[in-house]
Design a protein around this nucleic acid. Structure first.
Lengths: 189, 189
DNA sequence: TTAGTTGCAAACTCTTTGCACGAGG
DNA sequence: CCTCGTGCAAAGAGTTTGCAACTAA
């Protein structure tokens, strides 16, 4: 209950920000903002966001989702993330720098706020280049512990390799006997 | 001349990597790789890469560019960058971690290799999350010195604000007297 | 010779936009 | 009442893919 009240308060703050900037507080915007706040860790894309929002109001259209997301981003209230999937993911912004460690093999994302020490260090690096950075998400690609172990094992017996992030798995090249056509990159494709 | 020979040698290395992985060394791939190497700092997108490559062989098609770029990326020879422009940019990879400082106002990119100290620090942070990171580019959004000065000036007399990276400029909200239709976000739009 | 590669054009996916209707202030 | 916002469908933009012709090995 307390949580729900906190959430309501937070939603009100976002709506107030929107209104005080001269935009209208519509029910659709309210639903989309609440959906984003309730699913902070999920990094939904536009389609997922639409489906979640439609549980509250089935009449909401995809165009409204995109327009709301653009509005929030323009107001620096929303972070965009791009995992080279061919679409964008969205996440409510706060005043912190976030780090996303994205496993190029299994696609899992480890999500953490940079502590102030890390954040200040990055600010300092930016400062050396004359830049003043803003709150945002840094996507860092790598391989998680689990996949690293799996990859080591596979590489011993075969020449698998990491395929591109879009695939999200690892595959092998030079796969024999596939005949004409596209080379199969991924074990799971 | 010496530079040209170094370049040729480098191109040969890439082609050799491709061939030893069981792929064919075609003239199109050679041209695309050379184009990428000769324009390291430019971060071309697929269209730009096509146009540059077509100066050497006008028959090259966009599909070949995309397929070559996918091949190189799958082999970890190419970095993808995404500046939220709606398309990807490409850059030959090396064994270093790179930092791109991208100005959200004017769109300029300050491109630097992370020195080993920075790189090791980031590796360490990844390690804390159980990740082993790979050579890549980190996109860091911010505002460059020049735009910061301009922005400060404007903000004193008006309520401009940063608009989304896709726009690449700053605009204002609550712009009066625009009548029906889409709100103008950007001074330059 | 044979299987991988290319260019073309069509298909696909995600995102944006024009328009008439609806709704917030 | 006057705009801004919405839903729909169509348009746009970037990327992928099927196919017949071509080519590296």
């Amino acid at each position: 209950m307390a949580e729900k009240q906190d959430m309501d308060k937070l939603v009100q703050q976002y709506l107030e920000a929107i209104r005080s900037a001269g935009f209208r507080m519509t029910n659709q915007r309210k639903i989309i903002i609440e959906t984003l706040l309730k699913n902070m860790g999920d990094h939904p894309n536009a389609q997922e966001l639409l489906e979640m929002a439609q549980k509250r109001d089935p009449s909401i259209g995809i165009a409204t989702v995109y327009r709301t997301v653009e509005l929030l981003n323009n107001m620096d209230l929303l972070n965009l993330t791009n995992l080279q999937e061919g679409f964008r993911r969205y996440e409510m912004a706060d005043d912190n720098l976030h780090l996303h460690f994205y496993c190029r093999c299994c696609g899992s994302v480890y999500h953490t706020s940079a502590d102030k020490e890390k954040e200040n260090l990055i600010r300092q690096w930016a400062g050396e280049a004359g830049f003043k950075i803003m709150p945002q998400v840094l996507e860092i690609f790598g391989i998680c512990e689990k996949c690293q172990a799996e990859l080591d094992e596979i590489q011993e017996e075969d020449h698998f390799f990491r395929c591109n992030p879009r695939c999200g798995r690892f595959g092998r090249w030079n796969d024999p006997g596939q005949g004409r056509g596209r080379r199969r990159w991924c074990r799971n494709a």
